[in-house]
Design a protein around this nucleic acid. Structure first.
Lengths: 107, 107
DNA sequence: TATTATTATCGTAATATTGCAATATTAAAA
DNA sequence: TTTTAATATTGCAATATTACGATAATAATA
């Protein structure tokens, strides 16, 4: 089917899966890392930096934006893509909680 | 194309993306959570617990196993699926590092 | 206003993912 | 050895993802 049965899972399980889906692509990892490395909001050279076509980068940025991980100005020329700190910390906490709750060892 | 250009990214970026891909499905999140909640290696009732068909569960388990997150016996009847602690901590560290390195705020 | 640089959208192709029914395999139990 | 219970594999359909060329839209600059 290609679509997961999200209705049979909890909100938290779906939320974690959706967040993981955004990270489940090396280009988006690279984009996030590159944006965070910049001193200022220079985001025009992502295409040169990453090595993918401009429409592809634009789509990846959109995926990241959809879960609220990007903030800044989103109109016209010379955009300012930055990582939304609040959302970032929320995701960090979400993953940290998940990893720390699974600690049982039975084998 | 449906395939990401992994060769243009670093090993770490690809590894993180691959790990995230395994977590990018609520069924696999639920499976990991359920396995970790068990006191012993009882893994036979995942189908009833999760609510997906047996072949689907089997495939999800295989995805989790492929990145080395499961350990135990993998033959015949009455399997014993457990989370591999070492790999689990490695992933935990991988995500923690990623989340902590991205802290710059420019907007 | 016309040009230019930057980003977004559309259309399309190739491949991946999700899920299940049918069936096969495996190993213990009868 | 046959049966039975548990898991794996195969085949398939529906949908999602990744990527890019072509083109549109946007806003600053000449």
């Amino acid at each position: 089917m290609g679509i997961s049965k999200s209705h049979i899972f909890s909100h938290q399980q779906n939320e974690l899966a959706l967040a993981a889906k955004v990270l489940a692509n090396p280009a988006r990892i690279a984009i996030l890392e590159y944006i965070s490395k910049q001193d200022s909001c220079i985001c025009t050279d992502l295409v040169d930096e990453i090595g993918l076509a401009q429409p592809t980068i634009s789509q990846h940025l959109n995926e990241i934006k959809k879960i609220g991980l990007l903030t800044g100005t989103f109109e016209g020329k010379n955009l300012c893509y930055c990582i939304d700190q609040e959302k970032w910390y929320a995701l960090q906490s979400l993953f940290a909680t998940f990893f720390s709750t699974i600690t049982q060892n039975c084998c």
